[in-house]
């Protein structure tokens, strides 16, 4: 599927799996940023900090207590639409995850990952 032209954002883009240029799974499309008139997709928003937005009332509050407040660059990332390479069975990015700040959870350097017995 081409990324130009019309895209059914809820049917095909929201909640889709994101993979980096090397095929690593690095998160899902948790929200989509539109700008302009007529509105155009300008960025994909990724990260657990965005989960409360997707949940109703008390569940949102409870989740926010777990994931912390929405912090850009930390638990909420903005992936500019230009970084998207193609839309196929996943959203494929042009760059490696670390260049976009993604994939930290499975990053071998992270404290939790370093402590696992097989590392």
């Amino acid at each position: 599927m081409r990324k130009e032209g019309e895209i059914y954002v809820v049917h095909r883009l929201l909640d889709e799996q994101i993979c980096d240029s090397e095929g690593r799974r690095v998160g899902r499309v948790d929200d989509i940023e539109l700008r302009g008139d007529p509105p155009r997709i300008t960025a994909l928003l990724v990260g657990e900090g965005l989960y409360p937005r997707r949940l109703p009332g008390w569940l949102a509050r409870t989740t926010r207590r777990i994931v912390g407040p929405e912090t850009w660059g930390s638990n909420a990332l903005r992936i500019p639409w230009e970084e998207v390479d193609e839309l196929s069975s996943t959203v494929k990015l042009r760059k490696k995850a670390e260049d976009l700040g993604l994939g930290e959870g499975d990053d071998p350097g992270r404290w939790f990952v370093r402590r696992l017995p097989w590392n």
Binding site: Q17, I18, R24, G27, R28
Partner: peptide
């Protein structure tokens, strides 16, 4: 892992 988009 699939729900949260982790590598699996």
């Amino acid at each position: 892992a699939q729900f949260l988009g982790w590598e699996w």
